[in-house]
Design a protein around this nucleic acid. Structure first.
Lengths: 211, 211
DNA sequence: TGGCATACCAGACAAATGTCTGGTATGGAT
DNA sequence: ATCCATACCAGACATTTGTCTGGTATGCCA
């Protein structure tokens, strides 16, 4: 066979494993074997052991589907958090019906404290939070002045910057001069959580424009 | 045992599976068994079958580690893309040394076309791209006027909005009045790719402030 | 020319893992 | 009281999957 010995196959194997891993589906040796049409399992295994030797994969011997991408020291493991379609009074349940998608995020802690929301409106545009952006929120009922929070006012969820005003008042500041500051008694505001990540997808249209 | 029958355990099992999945490590029945201290594998399996019946997980029978989060119809499967530490002239290699982390993104296509970069400077702040943000980029050598691109000018990578000027000139527009437009002949600009996602982490400090 | 690494193949084997059968106990609903 | 779903346990079994041994062929380098 005139196949060159440049490691192309190994590169392809790596990409295949990486893509499967991203989908939460670490491949078995035989799945890799089938993907590339190897006639022997051992061929797949040799590529993987090679990649482990190069430091591009890690492996837990003896376990099934046990090849992983190496986590950097200090790197937080990813979590999947639910993107909620609507935020309703009080509950903030993760009901299946409200679940739009699972968003992978990198944050420490219990992922059940986290959820994601799609931003509506321009009230925070000067803070770099634009309409359509997705914010990742940690559920918490307390926050500090200066935090960007998700709060429930009159049964409506809103993203604003929090300031604690005099006499226990809660101020919700937009970051857009065209919007007004919301000032309420603490009892009228339910703090749902604090925004810990903002995300924007610039490309919602398909890549290849046609017909 | 005075354990209530409210499905709390099942909820915990779901969260455990979800978190393991996010890390590319779907658990085995016996791993779940150990995690929760069940004395029988069957207990773990019953919870999983229950979750599948509820539509919260999917399962491929007979396969190892084969419980997954259901992908929404039309939902793109996640990919892992490399966060590159530095962008050097021409190559844009995914060398191991330059690899800071793997960033999970949801985009269609071949993940080998994608990479992520950390933004330096304030030149795009009016487009909501702030210093420290991470941009996800698709490698492409062509882009349209209006696209936000990563371009190499004088061996330096920069994020700007692209405009195609007269006489084949390339204009790289900042979105900040304090910065100047860069205008170059096409031959002096290497287009590295197009920004398809922006991401900001608002919380880099640990959650519990202490000592 | 002789190593040596890459790339592949064939078959056997053992460990990991999912599945099945048949149980017990408890709380809630009818 | 009876039924039923949840929650759990014990043990056996079959399949999936990783591992091992022992090969062949090719290109590269000293």
């Amino acid at each position: 066979m005139a196949r060159t010995k440049t490691g192309q196959t190994r590169e392809s194997v790596f990409r295949f494993v990486r893509e499967q891993l991203a989908q939460g589906r670490p491949p078995t040796l035989r799945e890799i074997q089938d993907e590339f049409g190897f006639r022997a399992v051992e061929t797949a295994r040799e590529h993987l052991t090679g990649l482990v030797a190069e430091g591009r994969l890690t492996h837990e011997p003896g376990r099934a589907r046990a090849y992983r991408l190496p986590l950097r020291a200090g790197g937080k493991p990813p979590l999947l958090v639910p993107l909620l379609g609507r935020v309703q009074a009080g509950a903030l349940t993760t009901a299946v019906e409200d679940l739009e998608a699972w968003v992978p995020v990198q944050a420490r802690g219990d992922s059940s404290e986290l959820f994601a929301l799609r931003v509506r409106g321009q009230s925070m545009q000067d803070a770099g939070i634009l309409e359509g952006d997705i914010v990742v929120v940690r559920r918490q009922t307390q926050a500090n002045t200066g935090d960007i929070v998700v709060a429930l006012v009159n049964d409506e969820a809103t993203v604003k910057r929090l300031r604690k005003g005099p006499r226990g008042r809660i101020e919700l500041h937009p970051e857009n001069p065209e919007f007004d500051v919301i000032v309420r008694a603490a009892s009228e505001v339910t703090l749902l959580g604090k925004v810990i990540e903002v995300r924007r997808y610039l490309e919602t249209t398909p890549r290849v424009s046609s017909e």
